[in-house]
Computed example of a mutant assay.
Amino acid sequence: MFTIGCHLSSAKGYLKMAEDAASIDGNTFQFFTRNPRGGRAKAIDPADVAAFHAFAADHGITRFLAHAPYTMNPAAAKPETRQFAIELLTDDLMRMENTPGQLYNMHPGCHVGQGAEAGIALIADALNQVLTPDQSTTLLLETMAGKGTEVGGRFEELAAIIDGVELSDKVGVCLDTCHVWDGGYDIAGNLDGVLEEFDRAIGLDRLHAIHLNDSKNPLGAHKDRHAPIGEGHIGFDALSAVTNHPALRDLPFFLETPQDNLAGWGAEIAALRAAHAA
């Protein structure tokens, strides 16, 4: 089954997000666990969760992806910034157990001048503090564009983080098409080669989700600016090929493209569904 959705506002709860996804022929969705710049998370309403589960069962929604706020940086040099990240991760992963078996995505962090090796060690240490043996949530490290001091712009950096995590069975990867393109991986000209490189470094069994975005920048720009599907340098055909690739086609795809309303994402979903092999 082709599973695709977009990034929705969580302000009105799980049921409303599922209803919005279904209204544009989506069968998954993504949302921020709290304000993307940080802050306190909204209390979870058990009645809303129950209504969501009932609606989701009737509409073929089995998977969603929660996204950590951008301000969280477990690779920070300042102890207080790292502690904030650890506290936020702990809270988010606890909250995720209200909807068991789902996915939680995070940007690995920025080493802020300490060097990638130090950043990798700090991220792994933070994950070792927050992951628990009994959690049902799979935490995903997102592939990054490699701008500034971001960790995760190369597959080997994500592999090194995972290697340092004791409960590594709880950790996977979310591949962002804009990010890997901006990071220098040519998914338009050599998708098979990029996936082979991913498999060698990390293992395709670790890949649990795809952020499907076009890019406003040429290959290797290291800038991370998303574009609507087919309106960037990657192009519609290449992104459609991602959704049809045998190694990827059964994963959930999440649009983070710049759209003003649901209709814009609905049009992208319709076009991608039309080009998706049965």
Results as ranks from 00 to 15, higher is better:
Thr90Phe: 03
His245Phe: 09
Thr177Arg: 03
Phe52Trp: 05
Gly184Met: 06
Val242Lys: 01
Thr99Pro: 05
Cys174Ala: 11
Ala241Leu: 08
His111Phe: 07
Thr99Val: 14
Thr149His: 10
Leu65Asp: 00
Lys216Val: 05
Tyr185Leu: 08
Ile162Val: 07
Met96Trp: 02
Ala270Asn: 10
Ala76Gln: 02
Asp20Lys: 12
Gln129Asn: 04
Asp125Asn: 10
Met72Phe: 09
Cys6Asp: 01
Thr138Pro: 05
Glu197Gln: 13
Arg95Ser: 07
Pro74Gly: 05
Leu167Arg: 11
Phe31Lys: 04
Gln83Pro: 05
Gly38Met: 07
Gln135His: 08
Asp58Leu: 15
Pro218Asn: 08
Pro246Trp: 06
His233Gln: 15
Gln114Glu: 14
Arg34Ala: 05
Glu157Gln: 14
Phe52Met: 10
Gly203Asn: 09
Phe32Val: 06
Leu131Cys: 04
Ser9Arg: 08
Thr3Trp: 01
Glu87Arg: 11
Thr33His: 02
Phe198Trp: 03
Val151Ala: 06
Asn244Met: 10
Thr81Lys: 08
Tyr70Ile: 10
Ala275Met: 13
Asp134Gln: 11
Asp199Lys: 06
Lys216Ser: 11
Asn98Arg: 14
Thr90Lys: 06
Asp25Thr: 14
Gly26Thr: 05
Ala241Lys: 11
Asp214Tyr: 01
Ala275Asp: 12
Ile202His: 00
Gly115Leu: 12
Asp186Val: 10
Asn98Gly: 11
Tyr185Thr: 10
Gly148Glu: 06
Leu122Gln: 03
Lys16Asp: 13
Thr138Ala: 07
Met1Ser: 12
Lys16Ile: 08
